[in-house]
Design a protein around this nucleic acid. Structure first.
Lengths: 375, 375
DNA sequence: GGAGGACGTGAATCACTGC
DNA sequence: CGCAGTGATTCACGTCCTC
């Protein structure tokens, strides 16, 4: 995480196809890319009241044809793939004009799609001529660098963010408007500024505090702004100096978070909780060899606990809490922690999982000075 | 409209790549295609309760690699393009596994995308392992045979269908379940039967009474069933005789509409009030991680807000606004929105529900004309 | 008969660690 | 790298059954 220290939290001026090769390989944890959409607009569009619709007519969104756009897309995707860590992931946002080409090319390059996500716009521009449906969404593709790799996904953080229900692939946010929209003399600085709320969810989902987030089409720096708010590092690449200037001012004006702990406390992610083998309960004296355990409190399903933490049934069957549980339930697998009970001091049957929790608390609390004996 | 009379309202047995060349060129008004998705599933998947997930493991969804799938896709798309009238349009539905390849290839063939549409599933299957987002949508591409052609789009019909507001590109429907799902001896006949509501909207949008609608992957005939209900003609192509048999029975059981004029009388479809998860307040910067919240304004009941929108009390207790509220009140459930307060700019304690209301207003208001980026 | 709970199920690229 | 062991993981509906 520290091999790129010099470039952290910086904006590099230039075309990402030229700049990316100068970065070390496999050095960034996350990429968010908002490439040109290749809109192919033809002529001006007027509202019913004959006012002019401000279109995306920037030079950077002009390509000769699909094949030119494909070549451009392949080039920046390949350059991104090189700098992404093997366990890193990438997000790309687009509309129907370009997202099918982007998606097919990134699959061809070996990226592995994890989800596609639709950003549902609460307040999209209507279709003024009434000749199509209101174009009310954009698409994000979330992909890993390679198939079969481990990747960061803060499942529980996103679940919390969604009122303790699993986060879905349809995300509803309003457009970037109001105070959040950067303007100079009343004119918007960038024609396609993305809302910070969208980036907040992206970064929370797929990066950790201290990670390096790369945005090869940095624009006015939404990715950098949210990275700073969430205590991630960012690297921005942008070829338009006026966008770079706006982004620098924008990010500098953000107060860095004062309470990093509140950001890090994210995952009640159980995978990070240290695993406690069942045998530890014996080693710590919470259970003793020879003691009896009941399966689902059933008086007929009693096992004897052996010193090696295996269980033995009356008929001689022997195995771990999980293996015996698998046999007893007849299901393909079984988490034994949830099914075995011991006799507590008051005579009632209590779950062995309570003992695991007790042991976790025990091992997490700061030891007394007395416990540092001889170290 | 009448040049294909002999084949109207028929199901042709065979692979559409073989059958389509026998149809006259430029002879159908609309195509709806639900091709194989190329899911590439690996092992078995178990639910948390250890039951088995019924996978799509049909032979028709198996391809050697992307290149084989691309060749298949190009072949059927080309054959469809030939039989489509010059002013006709085509719909293709898919998931992230295949839709990017389909979209890129149809653009390469000269089809002109008019919209992409997301079918938001009200009741999708969850992600049981918690390793990705719930895959809660599928994508439809709606395209014309050629750029610049006139095409059928029943703008007002769809507007009526949507309570007199312009129809958007995000459509919310439940999965095809219950009585609508074809079953034999309790087993579903087809693993991917689409809901009729989806086809209803597609046909209403882009065809007229008496038009010819072609479905090259007819399956169990959802397209034909809806076409009959809406007084359109259909041509189905399907290579599995058991699907064909099921489709014939299904369509035969439908009474043809007696009052064609009544087809204009359309059901209403009110949009639900959008739910706002508490986490949205952080995503939109209305609250910040590290900030403190008070329960019922009680100075003794203070919690710290974490970046994932969970709260942490001084004693380490942690949970959502609702879960902590439940614990603090001791009642079976608790609407956290009514109980938690934040410190407002003037120092007073204000309800977080005010922030929710503010966010609703923010995202409902029409943006400035300038905020539209031509999308 | 109505309320409420149990149960089934849906296009799914669905684990990680240690030996 | 393969294999075995451990143990983490679900939401909205519709249907059927019980009370």
């Amino acid at each position: 995480m520290a091999d790129l220290t010099l470039n952290h939290d910086q904006i590099l001026l230039g075309d990402c196809r030229d700049v990316l090769p100068s970065l070390p390989p496999a050095s960034v944890d996350l990429i968010f890319a908002d490439p040109p959409y290749n809109l192919q607009l033809r002529g001006d569009l007027l509202r019913p009241n004959m006012t002019h619709v401000a279109a995306v007519d920037d030079a950077w969104d002009s390509f000769r044809d699909f094949s030119a756009y494909d070549a451009f897309t392949r080039a920046w995707l390949q350059a991104c793939q090189r700098v992404l860590k093997d366990n890193g992931t990438m997000w790309v946002i687009g509309s129907y004009h370009n997202i099918y080409r982007v998606g097919a090319i990134l699959q061809d390059l070996g990226f592995w799609i994890l989800n596609d996500i639709v950003w549902i716009k609460r307040n999209p521009m209507p279709n003024f001529r009434g000749v199509r449906l209101t174009n009310a969404h954009e698409t994000l593709i979330w992909c890993a660098k390679l198939p079969g790799q481990k990747y960061t996904f803060n499942y529980h953080a996103l679940r919390h963010l969604n009122d303790d229900k699993q986060m879905r692939s349809d995300w509803e946010f309003p457009l970037c408007t109001g105070n959040e929209r950067l303007r100079i003399n009343g004119n918007r600085v960038h024609s396609t500024q993305k809302p910070e709320a969208l980036l907040y969810r992206v970064l929370l989902a797929s990066s950790n505090v201290g990670d390096v987030v790369l945005d090869p089409f940095f624009g006015t720096g939404t990715t950098g702004a949210v990275a700073k708010r969430l205590a991630r590092h960012y690297i921005g690449i942008e070829r338009d100096p006026s966008y770079v200037e706006a982004a620098r001012g924008r990010i500098a004006a953000i107060d860095p978070p004062t309470n990093i702990a509140a950001l890090e406390a994210l995952p009640s992610n159980k995978r990070r909780i240290p695993r406690i083998p069942f045998g530890n309960l014996l080693e710590h004296g919470l259970l003793q060899a020879g003691q009896q355990l009941w399966f689902n409190r059933d008086p007929a399903l009693v096992a004897t606990l052996l010193a090696d933490a295996s269980l033995r049934m009356a008929d001689g069957t022997r195995g771990s809490i999980h293996k015996l549980g698998t046999m007893l339930t007849g299901q393909p697998s079984c988490n034994g922690w949830e099914h075995w009970f011991f006799q507590a001091a008051d005579g009632s049957l209590a779950s062995i999982d309570l003992l695991r929790q007790a042991l976790r608390q025990l091992s997490e609390q700061a030891p007394d000075a007395d416990d540092y004996s001889g170290l």
